[in-house]
Amino acid sequence: MEIGLNHYLVLSTLLFAIGLIGVMRRKNLLLLFFATEILLNSVNIAFAAISHYYGDLTGQLFVFFVIAIAASEVAVGLGLLIVWHKRHGNIDLDHMSTMRG
């Protein structure tokens, strides 16, 4: 059986849905970050599959840049999370709803 572009796009949809479910139901900010990583990775699969099936390298280059952005997002996000945890002792989203500093 031949694996086509649609197989990869369906898989990407499935993983994106899982990531969105994670984003919507998580309250702990660290696990929310995990869900955003899932979102980025599912889009990476779609990019790589389109790049392969259309013989175009642009998709692979975009995956490259998405990985760079994800790495810097993790670095800055974890730094902010550590600062917040030092001050408040928790990283739950519900405690961040007020802007009292």
Binding site: A68, I69, A71, S72, A75, V76, L78, G79, I82, V83
Partner: peptide, 13 residues
């Protein structure tokens, strides 16, 4: 951008 992220990570953590 990665350099900025590295400096930000060091300063924050």
């Amino acid at each position: 951008m990665l350099l900025v992220a590295m400096v930000a990570g060091i300063v924050l953590a």
